[in-house]
Each structure stands twice: as structure tokens, then as C-alpha cells.
Nucleic acid binder design. Structure first.
Lengths: 289, 289
DNA sequence: TAGCAGTTAGAATTTTTATTTCACTAGTTG
DNA sequence: CAACTAGTGAAATAAAAATTCTAACTGCTA
């Protein structure tokens, strides 16, 4: 069956249906058309604003291929298909009364009343952005460098973080392993948390993550690790936190909070930064030799 | 003094300056040019998307008049001026190619060389902020609402996300339980992933989270879930992702990426928003009774 | 009311853009 | 392995859009 034959029927009338069509038929498209498909899905703005030649160049394809693509999906030609993208842009583009819209939005978000999912999401996104800004200004350069040194100097890194902190802990373990650092996640599967933590020796590093209300198990592990003379980095929300006192290095993270619900964005961002910095550091030292 | 003479100098470099110029010189323009000026100020979108002929017709003027207008303000021709409007549209339109932008951003930030941990962290924080901004503009209202409905309507929610996606999955499971929704994390402990997933019935919901390179196990679970006729929400990075096709609802999330290392910020923010929106929804219905 | 500067509409031209065609490649089938 | 087929790139062609040009119009002044 040729592409031409495939084309016959469809010709989507809205961008959404076109998107659906593309996704559905993606597999059966030829390599070049798949290339176009990908670009089309990811750069609708270009489709609306640029000429065929430009689009073609950007997907590394001949202009004629774009035309073929359009015909495959039932359009007269590429221009015909472009109309859809232009329409889409018009309907969702900030119209001249943009300012008015912003005003309405913030009013809406501020009032406790109507809370459509979208409002919630915007509120979260905004709070998280604030939290990240705060992170940038509050974490001290020296602390980051020390943390990287501690990771680099450790034989292995053990990570503990339960309940709400678990995602951060699991991310940290995953990422460290990916940059070839031995990392063990103390996850307490089968109630073996205490047992898992006895593995720590004085050459290891424990990264403990805990926020209010601090999980008792995490606090305990920090305590017993201290006795084994391993080093400890704490990621927590206050210097007074029960895991802070016993730690060699404390990162105090204020994460976003929207109506009771705490976020993890800033903590995760810190975790990422530590791992990547460590990776860069290793690379540098490697080259240094 | 002729219009031609007036033209000499200017040629505004940004839309804002052009707008200023137009307003300032409006009085001294000829009637036809005033007509164009009015239209230009009020319909910037048309200027970006339409051809001269269309614009001309809409301001009830000859195409050549538009060209004269552009020259009056110091441009080579009308096309030249149109570029401005296109640019403007690109920068302030919800840009799906934020992914590209984020990538460029980090490439740029990285090229500088100096890679102190603090620089890394700032880079991450900034990329994450971009990703969150993008999230705000790219996730559609209707999709969020549908997702909340699906969660509300499900007997139980099963969540799968492996490797890099695991933190998001574990957070979702944790948070859903906290708002009293039955949630099971398919974590594959003891290699029981397949067994865990057979628990799903047609009244349940599966939330699958997977990013490139898509974990084979996740793809499999989505497939078998489909067969069991349960509903599926996918959180993934492309409509072409292997878990997208079988899903009832797809969230396409472009997370920040700094030198190979993908972030999870946007995905987590979406997860949070879903859970909290669900909680609000429950509360509202509860009060309704 | 003749003459003039500035403006305009519309046709003519040039340039750009889209589409079609064709020749070539690689892969498949009998 | 020959004959086909789908897919592709590149050049040729067609279409369209933008720009320029010219003749005619407007309102003003002498």
C-alpha cells in the first residue's frame, strides 16, 4: 500500500485530530516522514510561521518531503496544512488584551475560592519557581564544594530518606550510580532498615534526607551511623532538625508549600546539583592525571 | 517634507519601539497609512501570520500601501517588518519548543568552562525554572480535569515508574495515600513486577511514568493493563513514546536537561498538582452532600 | 482654474515560495 | 537476478506573494 493511497480519506480539521492521526500512523510512515512528524509535533510554532524551505532545513529534509507529508495526511498541499497551525496559534495566542488576562489570572489565583486543576498547577509551578530562586541564594558555595569532596572521598554512599523524602533519596541513589559512584539506598524493604544500615563503615558517607515530621527511623540511622564514625550529610528543613546535630554538613532547604502540601523541587534540584558536580569533579581529576 | 524623507533613519529593532514610533508619528501619516497603523497596532497576530494581500484587504487598502507603510518606518519592505511580529509571537507564545530552548540554555551556560558546584546548581535551578514555566503553558486545562476525574472514578490507582521515573512514581503513591486514595506502587521488589500488575482490574487506573530510554517493563505493564481494560494515564516526554499509544490520557512533559542529566521537576510538579486537585475535588464533593 | 505636491490604486514586474516531476537508490518479490 | 516498488533528493515548473512603477486623483495655492 503506497503512502498516496493511505492519504485518501482523512484531512484532519483540527490540530488535535491531526496530532492524533500523526501519532496513530507514525509507525507506518517512512523514515523521512517520521522525521517530519516528529518536528511537526514538537514545533507547531514553526509550522505556523516559517516557510517550507525553513521548516525543511530544520528537519533536515527536502521541501518536497513536507509536501508529501501533508498529502499523506489528506491535505491538498503543505500550505493547506499550515492553515491549521496558524489557526491554533491565533486562538491560543495572547490577544491584544494580554495585560487584562494577567490581571484576571492573579486575581483568580489569589482568591481562595475557585480552584480548577489548572489554577492549582500554576500555583504550584510558581511556588516551586520561588523555592528554586531561594535555593540559589541560600545555599553556600563552600558547602557545596565540601559535599562534593565528601562524596568523592567516600568508599560508598548510603542514602536514607523515608516517606515524603523517599523520592529524593531514590533519585540520589539512581543518579549516583549513573555516574559510577557506589550508592546504596536504605529503603527498608522487608523491615530490614536497621540491618541495611549496619553495613556502613567509617570510610562511607551517609546522606540523610528528612523533613518535618522527621521519620523516627531516619533519625535512628543517623545516630547509629555517627557511632560508626562515618561521615554524614543532612538534607533537612532546619538546623534544629533531629538529624542536623549529628551531621558533618547540613543543607537547610526550604521547599515550596502550597496549602499544607510540601514540594520536593528544591531538594531534588540540590540532589541533582551535587551529583553532577561530583561527576564533573571526577572528570576533571581524571583528566588531571 | 515627504513621507519618503521621514523614513530615512529609524527602523525599529523591537516591536515595542515600533509601536512607540507608530503612535508618535500617527498624526503626520497620510489617511491610508493611518488606516494601516491602526490595524497594525490592533492586530499584531495578523501581521505575523497573514500575507500582504490578506492584511491589505482587512485594512481596506492596497498591498502596496502596506509596503509604503513599512518603508515609512524604515524597513526594507513589508516582509522585513513582518519578521518583528513573528519574533514577538514566538517569544511570547506558549512555545512547545521550550525543550529546545532549555537544551540551548544549558549548552550556553555550560560552554563557559568554569564549573564550580555553585554554577552547576544555578544552572539547574534556572533550567528547572524554565521547565516549570513551560509546564504552565503547555498542559491543557481539559487534560488536568480529565485526569482528576479519572482518579476520582477509579477503584484504586496503580502507579508504575522505573529507574529515573521512580522518584515521581513513589511520590505519587505516597501523596495519593495521604489524601486517602488507594494507591499501589508497582516497584518490582523481588522481581515481582509482572505479578504485581496482574492485580489491576477494569475499575482501576494505571498511572505510568516513563521517559527516554523507556523502560521495557513499564511498556509491558501498560500493554497488559490495556488488555485488562483498565484506564491509563501516561506521563511521558513525547506523544510518540511507546506508552502513549495505549493510554487514555497523555501528559507530554519536557523536563529540564543539563548535560545529559534530565531533571524531574516538571513531572513532579504535575504529580503534585494532580494529587492536590484531586483532594480539592473530593472535598468539594464531600461538602456538596 | 491651472499648476503642483503629495497621495493613491492598480497594473506590471520581480522575487520568493510551493508544488510537481523525474531520475536514482535500496529493498522486495517472483 | 531481473522486475518491480516505495521512497527519496534535486531540479523544473507553477503559483503566489511582495515590490515597484505609473498614471491618475486630491486638495491646495496662485
Amino acid at each position: 500500500m503506497t503512502l498516496r493511497e493511505l492519504a485518501v480519506a482523512s484531512s484532519a480539521k483540527t490540530l488535535e485530530t491531526l496530532r492524533g492521526d500523526i501519532v496513530r500512523r507514525y509507525e507506518e510512515l517512512s523514515p523521512r516522514l517520521q522525521q517530519v512528524a516528529k518536528y511537526v509535533l514538537e514545533n507547531p510554532n514553526d509550522m505556523a510561521l516559517q516557510t517550507l524551505a525553513v521548516i525543511a532545513e530544520r528537519c533536515e529534509v527536502q521541501p518536497s518531503t513536507i509536501v508529501r507529508f501533508a498529502k499523506t495526511f489528506g491535505y491538498e498541499g503543505a500550505s493547506d496544512m499550515q492553515e491549521l497551525f496558524k489557526d491554533e496559534m491565533l486562538t491560543q495566542a495572547p490577544s491584544p488584551s494580554y495585560a487584562e488576562r494577567i490581571r484576571q489570572f492573579s486575581r483568580r489565583a489569589g482568591a481562595a475560592g475557585a480552584l480548577a486543576p489548572q489554577d492549582v498547577m500554576h500555583e504550584f509551578a510558581d511556588s516551586n519557581i520561588l523555592a528554586l530562586e531561594h535555593l540559589k541564594s541560600s545555599v553556600r558555595k563552600a558547602d557545596l564544594e565540601r559535599a562534593v569532596d565528601m562524596i568523592a572521598g567516600a568508599n560508598a554512599v548510603y542514602i536514607v530518606g523515608l516517606r515524603r523524602s523517599f523520592p529524593v533519596a531514590s533519585y540520589l541513589a539512581y543518579a549516583l550510580r549513573h555516574v559510577d559512584k557506589r550508592a546504596y539506598l536504605l529503603d527498608g524493604v522487608a523491615g530490614m532498615l536497621a540491618e541495611q544500615s549496619t553495613m556502613l563503615t567509617s570510610k562511607d558517607l551517609l546522606i540523610a534526607i528528612s523533613f518535618q515530621p522527621y521519620a523516627a527511623e531516619t533519625v535512628e540511622i543517623v545516630g547509629s551511623t555517627r557511632e560508626q564514625k562515618a561521615r554524614i550529610i543532612a538534607i533537612t528543613d532546619s538546623r534544629l532538625s533531629p538529624i542536623a546535630a549529628a551531621s558533618d554538613l547540613v543543607f537547610e532547604i526550604k521547599d515550596a508549600e502550597v496549602r499544607q502540601f510540601r514540594s520536593l523541587t528544591a531538594s531534588l534540584c540540590l540532589a541533582q546539583s551535587l551529583v553532577i558536580s561530583y561527576a564533573f569533579d571526577m572528570e576533571k581529576r581524571g583528566r588531571g592525571r
